[in-house]
Write a protein that binds this DNA or RNA. Structure first.
Lengths: 233, 233
DNA sequence: GACAACGAAATTGGCGACAATATTGCTGGC
DNA sequence: GCCAGCAATATTGTCGCCAATTTCGTTGTC
């Protein structure tokens, strides 16, 4: 659409020009989750191959894969768009997270070594500090880190994979939530409860604490959408 | 490998020859889950395009998608094979099912209409009869049907999608289990308990019953693998 | 007789071209 | 002035070809 003239920065994939087999997927995925592409935005194959300095077939196969991952939607002969996930879908995702992160939390409670417990405790302390300082973005990052570490500690590859996929799908909702005023002070004690349960190697308490936390996230999602007017993301 | 001469039956995809965009994926997926291809078997692109009477690029893109679904594994420049899932992986899958089908079971208990409850009860009755008759294959089918209907009743699209994917990955383990002598008489009461809980619209009991059931499945998987010698599927 | 080096065959990876389809803009009639 | 039909354009879908890579078989040497 004539914007090929406005010399757009080309994001070279992996350094070498035009190559990078599987990493084209990673590049486009990151661009979507980072918000470079808006929800519902059309993803034209030739534009993308241009932007990422790769071939159209590479982009094509990447879009196929991202469709499978739930980040992109395609219609026959009508191309691909960034998937926009509705509030209802975000709630569904959170319900699944509730179950699966509950499992991971329980497993982490079983397996965590003293060092790993110390690591979680350190994250908890940092969270406390960040909330006290009113550092919303920092807290959001620590939040992601905590959830990720607990997933990893579970050593449940199947659950980890599913959760990673779902996380990518709901980054926007997740981020919106983090910016909600007063939200950190609600979630902080929930996070600390999870850490405590894992530290005490109490799988049942760890699962319950995680479920409580994500239940509260679901509630917050619903509330936030009311104030925001039910926008899709 | 010179077996192109033995006139192998060509399974036309979708009737018309050589077409059928997305349904090539379905055809190969079915062939894998039906056991036409053994685990670890190589999937040569030209062979498949021959067998399903389609183009190599269609097969190629199908294999890409099936890799994403966890049914196929690929190595750079070395082609695709049918993924073989180990006992440990099967247990992981079952743990995830435990959580997610637990969720679906609870939601089904909330939502099920009288008609739907009657339908589940009918399945339960049929199961009882099939066990009494010693009809193992029939029971296995009814088993799958029950789990599927509960998933559908939950109207949790996200969980349904994940579960469907995982089911395809573990069909072999699932089938092996169904053939285990004495297994039906163990699982029958568990299934009936799930149905009862849903019929009584008791989400908590429904979730618990489902978790108990799949916990028992995990135990059975482990036992079966001992007698079978820890074979991969 | 075993093994390394080499060459041939099989297979995958990727690009370019072309056909099929959808979208957009234009023209003429009412 | 609005709408139907048609032409032009943009975009996707698919195929065939060739290069890159791996695998398999052969030959020659020790």
């Amino acid at each position: 659409m004539a914007n090929r003239s406005e010399a757009r920065q080309q994001e070279r994939v992996k350094g070498r020009g035009g190559r990078g087999g599987g990493s084209v997927v990673a590049a486009i995925r990151e661009a979507i989750t980072r918000g470079d592409f808006a929800p519902e935005q059309r993803l034209v194959e030739s534009d993308l191959s241009d932007r990422f300095d790769t071939s159209r077939s590479a982009v094509r196969s990447a879009l196929l894969q991202l469709t499978e991952e739930g980040l992109v939607e395609r219609e026959q002969n009508r191309g691909a768009r960034v998937r926009s996930v509705s509030l209802e879908e975000a709630v569904e995702i959170c319900e699944v997270r509730m179950m699966l992160e509950g499992l991971c939390s329980a497993k982490a409670a079983e397996r965590a070594t003293p060092d790993e417990v110390a690591e979680l405790r350190a994250i908890g302390d940092r969270m406390r500090q960040l909330v006290a300082d009113g550092n919303v973005l920092g807290y959001s990052e620590a939040n992601q880190l905590l959830h990720r570490r607990i997933r990893e500690l579970s050593e449940q590859a199947t659950a980890e994979e599913v959760l990673e996929r779902l996380r990518a799908q709901s980054v926007r909702h997740q981020f919106q939530l983090a910016l909600q005023p007063g939200r950190p002070s609600v979630s902080l004690p929930e996070h600390l409860a999870i850490i405590d349960a894992i530290a005490e190697h109490d799988p049942l308490a760890a699962e319950t604490a995680m479920r409580t936390h994500l239940g509260s996230v679901i509630g917050a999602l619903r509330e936030a959408s009311q104030t925001m007017g039910g926008l899709r993301f």
